[in-house]
Amino acid sequence: LPQRNPPFSSSQGENKVVTLLLWAEPERVCAMPDPALPDSDIKALTTLCDLADRELVLNISWAKHIPGFSSLCLSDQMSLLQSAWMEILILRVAFRSLTYEDRLVFAEDYIMDAGQAKSAGLLELHTAILQLVRRYRSMRLETEEFVTLKAIALANSDSMHIEDMEAVQGLQDSLHEALLDYEHVQHREDPRRTGKLIMTLPLLRQTSAKAVRHFCSIKQDGRVPMHKLFLELLEAN
């Protein structure tokens, strides 16, 4: 997470929650594929699983900085992350890929086209994430909207194990309100924009479920090394 201090006040017209979410956004991570390994599906998947594991550590720390998240009980914090971790990873990939045509930016040094995805056995997932990218590109998704939508995806993860639903509902409401407020100020010309953003969440959920299923089958196959946190969250699903 950024080393600078959190913003104490927002400029006029800026939503405080959105400002804090912008500040909390993790730095980008490099994939660093092992140059000693020959290119193969195993190498591609190993690189992606390692990258995902490192991003997960950052995303857990990020979640703690969502205003209101750390007021939830620890068990509910865990439940939300266990349900939404892949949605968060995918939304970050989709946002990074907005300016790239038909390629997915898993990291600045790991950009995958359809041919490479097919070689890694990831064509179906690649196609699904690109559908999400196209949707956000057509809307010209902004960074402020991306960070808020990502926090909403976490708060709205529909875990079956929430203990204090009222508290989680409160978090959802405050994030929803932040998005409504941002859109009201920044996009008065399109009163339906908040709704359009929220309506992308089912596709994100669907794509995430596809990804989890795929990586669960890779795990069962046993040929790709996976780090413990990534494994732990795959097992939680």
Binding site: K16, I60, S61, H65, P67, G68, Q82, S174
Partner: peptide
């Protein structure tokens, strides 16, 4: 919690949160 010990540990150890 035992089953999800890394997530549990990371949530407990990550830096102090910013709250409203």
């Amino acid at each position: 919690k035992e089953k999800h010990k890394i997530l549990h540990r990371l949530l407990q150890n990550s830096s102090s949160p910013v709250d409203l």
